[in-house]
Design a binder for these strands. Structure first.
Lengths: 228, 228
DNA sequence: AATCCCATAATGATGCATCAAATATCAAAA
DNA sequence: TTTTGATATTTGATGCATCATTATGGGATT
């Protein structure tokens, strides 16, 4: 009976985090935050030692990031963080436009007033972060802003694919500072997106998010050009 | 000097396939071919025993398929092959339209006459398979037809994402027989795609492939409806 | 007949040893 | 100085034992 009583009321508790999961999350955080230089070798044992786990969880984490494309096999026993090339940036940007545009367009189907309120608060936090030049905070909230909208699509597999794309541009995005912390072009896009959500205008949300992606693309492209 | 001598003459030998890789490929084949019933439990040890390997490669293969979404965690220690629901089909179809449409549109940028000749031969094989009601052959060549076009996009990460989507509808597609083996609607789409490739008309290739996806969607939807 | 409880078996995660393969090192040769 | 080749070291893959957790089945209870 308790089953019926609880059905729909509670969700199953999140499965406990296993060491492999924690190692994966930690390693991902290190990679996305830009703390790990591109083209530097990663080994199972070095990761295991650095994170204080045995080889099995370390190997699991590396393999998982490998299958997501966040790391690549540069050789038979050589795993490195890929550096973003022009070609990769073009490909990933086009894919992002397709998938994030799709998710953005669908977001209006399930958006609630409470969601928009949260987005507004996030935008306040982004503006504050820009004022304080706290780029880490800006990036973090910006990411939450985007994914809150994408999750409104109600399509978790789509959101997961988008996440894997962000994982590939994330490391390079961190090199954009202080460009990102001082450039406020993204603010206008976010405001347009929120307007579209209020009006339940899917096309408008899509175009706003697409423009945000294109703005980021231009900056990343300039960065890559300067790097060479 | 031997470097210069051998340059361009020989290609590096393919790296040996590891057990984990072989196990993954084999398990994937079993799943895509529809030989494994949905909602049936998969365990590390059962896969290891069935394929004659130890638990490590079996676990690697299961985890990899899990991360691709080809298998899902139904519970803490319960891995099953997901059955395709209406919701999942809608989501995956929309994502396929976005990504395969993108790849199809770009295919004209790099298409060579030799590619079109190969596609024509594939279509001959598909027609022969339809005549012989050899659905397994039809499915196999149909898949090769699609991916040859997608690979022309020159975007390997995009192709990899499309592959993971096919992995999710593949098992159900096998239940479509003999519907698929007798229905020739896909032939017209393929012919249109080849026309578009010859004319280097990206929009035409895209619309042909999109129509092919939509036709498959309708049939899958009917199948799911009948299954319940 | 349906539900609950508990003992038992099964399972995934983890740690670790081993081995073949790849890399790094370095001295000898060109 | 550069290249080559032998040697030592490092590394990923694999197999397997162990352990805490979970699934399972059957009997007891309502």
């Amino acid at each position: 009976m308790s089953e019926r009583l609880l059905a729909g009321v509670v969700t199953p508790i999140a499965r406990q985090s296993y060491l492999g999961e924690l190692t994966y999350e930690r390693l991902k955080e290190i990679i996305v935050s830009g703390a790990f230089p591109p083209n530097e070798k990663l080994t199972v044992r070095s990761v295991a030692a650095a994170l204080g786990v045995s080889t099995t969880p370390a190997r699991d984490a590396i393999n998982r990031l490998l299958s997501e494309g966040a790391l690549i096999n540069e050789g038979p026993k050589t795993v490195v963080l890929p550096s973003l090339t022009f070609e990769a940036l073009d490909e990933i940007t086009a894919t992002r436009l397709a998938l994030e545009g799709l998710a953005a367009e669908r977001s209006v189907l399930a958006v609630a007033p409470a969601d928009i309120a949260v987005l507004e608060q996030m935008q306040v936090a982004i503006n504050a972060g820009l004022d304080a030049a706290d780029y880490r905070e800006v990036l973090k909230v910006n990411r939450e802003f985007h994914f809150l909208i994408y999750r409104m699509s109600g399509w978790p597999r789509l959101v997961a694919m988008i996440e894997s794309l962000w994982l590939r541009v994330g490391p390079s995005f961190n090199e954009l500072y202080p460009d990102f912390a001082t450039n406020r072009r993204g603010v206008a896009n976010h405001l347009l997106a929120m307007q579209g959500l209020r009006a339940k205008d899917g096309a408008k949300v899509r175009s706003a998010m697409e423009q945000d992606i294109r703005d980021g693309y231009v900056r990343l492209k300039n960065m890559i050009r300067a790097r060479r």
